[in-house]
Nucleic acid binder design. Structure first.
Lengths: 210, 210
DNA sequence: ACGGGTGCATAACAAACGTTTGGTAGGTAC
DNA sequence: GTACCTACCAAACGTTTGTTATGCACCCGT
């Protein structure tokens, strides 16, 4: 039996957290084994002991990133329908410094991910799942008459995710222009507009035909 | 007088295009002087002859990226108001392979940009200008009653840009799920929903109440 | 036609990179 | 106590990075 089996996973988590800290300050372009090792006052030998190569380290870093996004202290749970959708989107936005750091890493990861088909597929899968989760809330909201039932559920979910993602990017580059209150206000305006379209005061001229 | 004055700028453009091609396939993480040199069948000596260092090369690469976005064959011009806003957003979306490549590079650039305050500031400025351009169309649409006058012009412009940016990211990672027609449909649904909110089911049209 | 400066390749450079190796400390099993 | 396995360090490996130095070929004004 290995002497310290439980320590193994804990150590891996230590490494991942050091990776996290490096990514926050230097991005993926500055992610090197030496930087990570220095960040945790260790040697590169330690890293290679727990990860076969840099790619594996990077992969688990992205997993940690995804997990942190899921395990992050959720704002609420009991809400349903449109309120639940709002909550889910609020959880994504960089409203706090911690969330801003996490989002910063997310955005940075898109460079490596887009350059590597395998990583791109994993990222795509994550966003697909996120969209499915949102779809659940959208569907509930549609049943409750809080969102227009005429629109496709998946389309509304995609629009919601897109709106949140875009707002994240804008906020990261111009934090002064997009303080937390404004991000929330923009989201609420958007949700309200869509909810007001729910009963539908009749939309004959809507005409999606370009 | 230099023997080939016109050639100089032309050569710089050649280099920039090679940079472009490298970025499309390998992203900013794979942008090296040797890769660029090989891409244009030249040596690294040529690169250093036209650019003092890699940072300068990267900087002009980002400028080329911005310029290409501006010089790209615009869809139309005569449109005004909501139609102009729609056109401007359509110009951003990755509806064609070329636009997808350009957007891919945009997204990739966020990693280097976020890690470098100077580049981040330049990026932020570009997005701010883009938002201002959109604001012009939004304001016109509001005057025409095509968008709710109750909402702040800047907020609507920010929401529009956010929506487009987020849709770009989603489309890049899941091109199969977001073909051009769906991107357009999502955008039109979004615009239509907002336009239907313009007269306001409870608000008198164009009433300027505080 | 001929010197001078430009345009660029060739080649070297130190630094930093990911990875590999040899070895030590300390715990567990027998 | 002996054998062994895990955890880890220190150092070195060969490669790739950005940058610099040297030298040749061409075009130009004179």
């Amino acid at each position: 039996m290995p002497p310290a089996r439980g320590d193994h996973d804990a150590r891996r988590r230590d490494v991942s957290e050091a990776v996290w800290r490096v990514l926050v300050t230097r991005g993926f372009g500055g992610l090197t084994l030496r930087a990570v090792a220095a960040e945790m006052d260790a040697s590169t030998g330690l890293l290679t002991h727990y990860f076969p190569n840099k790619r594996a380290l990077l992969r688990t870093a992205l997993e940690i990133l995804a997990q942190r996004s899921e395990d992050r202290p959720r704002r609420t749970a009991p809400a349903e329908g449109l309120a639940a959708l709002r909550t889910a989107l609020l959880d994504v936005l960089p409203l706090t410094p911690e969330s801003a750091a996490a989002n910063r890493i997310w955005v940075s990861s898109w460079d490596v991910a887009l350059a590597d088909p395998e990583l791109a597929a994993e990222h795509a899968e994550r966003y697909r799942r996120s969209r499915e989760r949102l779809s659940g809330h959208v569907a509930a909201a549609q049943r409750r008459g809080e969102l227009p039932a005429t629109a496709a559920t998946a389309d509304l979910a995609a629009a919601a995710q897109g709106f949140a993602l875009g707002l994240v990017v804008q906020s990261l580059f111009a934090p002064a222009e997009f303080p937390a209150e404004r991000q929330i206000a923009l989201l609420d305006d958007w949700l309200t507009t869509w909810r007001n379209a729910a009963p539908g005061p009749a939309d004959p001229p809507a005409a999606g035909s370009g």
